[in-house]
């Protein structure tokens, strides 16, 4: 599992890579939070294009980032989800908190 960060003005994008479960969630969280504290983005984009699996630990991860961001008025966007990840996202109702792109096929 790895996280690549790119910063473009007000927008910070975290490119997640690998499988997201309880085992990997903590290190992903740290990588995203370090970048968010440094850059204070108005918009944080989580890019799941290279994530091959996610369970509800990933929902905890997304919800936690949403809470941190919304405390200082930042917004969250989710993109690049596979059908498997999109299905887990949908079940959680996360689209009420963040914007999410339709999943790739």
């Amino acid at each position: 599992m790895s996280v690549d960060i790119s910063v473009n003005g007000e927008v910070t994008t975290a490119y997640l890579n690998g499988e997201i479960d309880h085992h990997t969630a903590a290190s992903i969280r740290n990588a995203i939070d370090n970048a968010a504290e440094l850059n204070m983005p108005a918009l944080l984009v989580l890019d799941f294009t290279r994530v091959s699996f996610m369970d509800s630990s990933g929902i905890g991860l997304v919800m936690g980032r949403y809470r941190n961001l919304s405390r200082r008025g930042g917004k969250l966007h989710i993109t690049g989800t596979s059908p498997q990840i999109y299905k887990v996202m949908k079940l959680s109702g996360i689209e009420k908190l963040a914007t999410i792109d339709e999943c790739k096929k």
Binding site: R29, S56, S57, I59, G60, M63, G64, V88, L91
Partner: peptide, 15 residues
């Protein structure tokens, strides 16, 4: 506490 979503059983039930 921490960052559990509380959705494990919901996933098992719906999937």
């Amino acid at each position: 506490g921490g960052e559990r979503a509380g959705l494990g059983f919901a996933v098992m039930q719906s999937f």
